[in-house]
Write a protein that binds this DNA or RNA. Structure first.
Lengths: 228, 228
DNA sequence: CGTTCAGTTGAGTTGCTTCAACCCGTGTGG
DNA sequence: CCACACGGGTTGAAGCAACTCAACTGAACG
């Protein structure tokens, strides 16, 4: 991951773009496709039905990359939104390919990243299809907990998610009202406390892990690419 | 796709394996990872909760490939099951990498394939999170219709899915009972007819497409890699 | 001080699930 | 050849989890 930052900052620092919270990411160049490399802030990748309902497919954290290109190599079928103020580097795909070619470490780390993303998506899909609201919310909290604290000492059980309850709802496939209730219930049971604007503090990790229906270490290996 | 078959048959025909309906695919070699290339039959990639509930994440059709490798490059976090009698070729990952290296066409087609798979998964996730049972079932039917008939003349509106209602339920995130009801309703409305063991015949494509909440041609471009 | 917007809570509704019974085609053993 | 069990699909009845609608709160902001 460090490698990643260094390489990019050095070679492509000039392509850096800062975007306000709520901004929609679009490739700027006319037709050329881009891969987005996130330096700061969070992105949400989402897709929506014609009736306006949207589902957040994945969240992207600093140090990760994303390419919204569709099959036809032209249209993008997803929407990317900045959840807070972000800094991204947009690299057109041919340049990116060259970078990968030249830098085995980057190639390796990107592969791990892709595998992890796939695993996360599978986990969420499983819960979307077969789990209760409580499990879905608990799982999202655990996943984000693991991803946020991946490099930090693991005694910290508090983190911040820059998103509202509506967005958490769009991520976990629930209504915002029900997300609220569920969060409140977890609060009352003393499992977590929620602070200003999605500051999450997990008090009872085992309980939350249990609700989420996961094994913490197994999930970490599956989902967080650092370890490998 | 044809390229794909030819290349593989020629170079790796000896690794072919035939498996009975219901068999679980496992890498056979001790520790080495494999990519599975499906020649005949259908595969289901699934994941399950500890309580036994399982979600089918994707279906794999002849001509497609799948690599179940997890982040740690060791454990697989998904299960692969043969939905009917299948023939697969298992290629260990280093050989596969060499194949990709040497064969630009294969590389290209695999990239399209991967994009399409990603797009399909996004579509399903969207519906899993935000849609009614009717929409989910209709979408699955449309998706499989497009994938099955991709190369065939598009006047054929009938196809076969080698899976039971329980499996369709695991795929669409519903109970088997409700899948049954939904299918029955579509029958009564004259939109489809279901025959022996999941023979699907679509009579009113526009209606089904409408229920699924998609545009047929847009979806085809997004999901079926042949066109590009 | 009024407006706005996210979060919270209650009340009522509904879509899907669960449970259970039943049907029917297939296979199997007496 | 019949009897029987078995598994998948079908249908009804009842329950419940999550949704919608709507009202209220409180913080943020002009």
């Amino acid at each position: 991951m460090l490698t990643f930052h260094l390489v990019l900052e050095q070679t492509l620092g000039q392509n850096k773009r800062a975007l306000q919270k709520g901004a929609i990411l679009k490739a700027e160049g006319d037709k050329s496709q881009h891969r987005f490399c996130l330096i700061e802030g969070w992105l949400a990748v989402s897709k929506s039905l014609q009736d306006g309902e949207q589902q957040i497919l994945d969240l992207i954290l600093p140090g990760e990359t994303y390419d919204p290109t569709g099959v036809d190599g032209n249209t993008s079928f997803v929407q990317i939104e900045a959840l807070n103020n972000v800094v991204v580097i947009a690299i057109d795909t041919t340049t990116w390919a060259r970078l990968l070619q030249d830098n085995p470490d980057l190639r390796h780390s990107e592969m791990l990243q892709a595998n992890a993303a796939q695993a996360r998506q599978s986990q969420r899909m499983l819960r979307l299809g077969k789990s209760s609201a409580e499990t879905r919310v608990a799982y999202v909290l655990i996943e984000m907990y693991l991803r946020v604290t991946k490099s930090k000492p693991s005694e910290i059980f508090a983190f911040h998610m820059p998103m509202g309850q509506q967005q958490l709802a769009d991520f976990s496939g629930l209504s915002s009202v029900h997300v609220c209730r569920t969060l409140r219930r977890l609060n009352r049971q003393g499992i977590i406390t929620t602070g200003d604007h999605m500051d999450i503090c997990v008090h009872d990790v085992p309980a939350l892990v249990d609700l989420a229906g996961v094994d913490l270490e197994t999930l970490r290996n599956e989902i967080v690419p650092t370890a490998a």
